[in-house]
């Protein structure tokens, strides 16, 4: 057994035995090869189901929203950043959590197991930013010259090319909302697409309704998205959902010098007013 898996099980089992937490959230083997599923262990015996490999692609911060128990959670770099978001947004309190940090060297692409998945290839926060204990020594962070090359390529297109690019991107979306459900940011009790009075968006497979869903969902993630890739990991239709959020991540960085989920003492830029905020869009 892989030493990281062993270490995770050991820590998880100890904190459960000591009664420090009521449950530990981690990954267990999925039902088909090369997949994992989120798993909550409530007893030291259940800890034996935890695994750690290249397929832990979901974001476990998604499963702590609004919970009342004391929770142990296994966190790679991006999960830890979404945990920070959750603390800042009052979805959980820091003292409810015991964070088992796992340095991550990137998760595998779901179709190309020998390669890193897209978001991991440009990740610069592989080590957890917040933790109570680390399961291993930190890994070296990647140095990426141009993390937003893909966004820039779209920015360089003319407006019709951009539109057809995004139209093409979404044409296979079946609107199952798996992306939204897997995203730790999407925790609203009733999502705007599910509202019926007023009904903001049509419910069917109308192309414009699908586009509206993606466009607005992305905007709700502005300044909050950690590029964890859970949305794409969950999508059954291989939609490049991050094409939208990455543009917003790039803007957040350029306009506000902001990367989401790095510091529990800072509010996200769209939530605060600062006299230096760029405001040349106001006439």
């Amino acid at each position: 057994m892989d030493s990281l898996t062993q270490k995770i099980r050991e820590i998880a089992s100890n904190i459960l035995k000591e009664g420090r937490v009521d449950m530990v959230i981690g990954f267990a083997k999925g039902t088909i090869p090369m997949t994992t599923k989120p798993y909550m262990a409530r007893t030291p015996e259940q800890v034996e189901n935890f695994i750690w490999d290249k397929n832990c692609t979901l974001n476990l911060a998604n499963y702590i929203t609004g919970r009342k128990e004391k929770i142990g959670i296994i966190a790679k770099g991006c999960d830890s950043r979404n945990i920070v978001n959750h603390i800042v947004e009052n979805k959980i309190s820091r003292d409810q959590l015991y964070i088992i940090g796992v340095p991550c060297s990137g998760m595998a692409d779901k179709h190309n197991p020998d390669e890193l998945r897209d978001n991991c290839a440009t990740c610069t926060h592989r080590n957890p930013v917040i933790f109570d204990v680390m399961a291993a020594e930190p890994v070296e962070e990647q140095k990426i010259d141009d993390p937003f090359a893909d966004v820039k390529a779209v920015e360089a297109m003319d407006k019709d090319a951009k539109w057809s690019y995004f139209e093409g991107l979404l044409q296979n979306c079946i609107r199952c909302y798996a992306c939204r459900n897997a995203c730790p940011l999407c925790y609203c009790p009733t999502c705007f697409v599910d509202e019926s009075g007023p009904q903001w968006v049509g419910k069917g497979q109308n192309k414009t309704d699908i586009q509206t869903f993606h466009f607005l969902r992305a905007f709700h993630c502005a300044g909050r998205c950690t590029d964890c890739g859970a949305c794409e990991a969950a999508c059954p239709m291989d939609i490049h959902v991050r094409a939208f959020t990455r543009k917003l991540n790039k803007d957040s960085l350029e306009l506000f010098g902001w990367e989401a989920g790095l510091d529990i003492t800072k509010r996200p830029p769209l939530d605060t007013f600062n006299p230096d905020d760029p405001n040349d869009f106001i006439k």
Partner: peptide, 20 residues
């Protein structure tokens, strides 16, 4: 918001802000 508008190929000028 205007930037995301532009990013998907809509004219940014369709969304304008003013403080009056």
């Amino acid at each position: 918001m205007a930037n995301l508008f532009e990013h998907i190929g809509m004219e940014k000028e369709r969304l304008q802000f003013s403080w009056i």
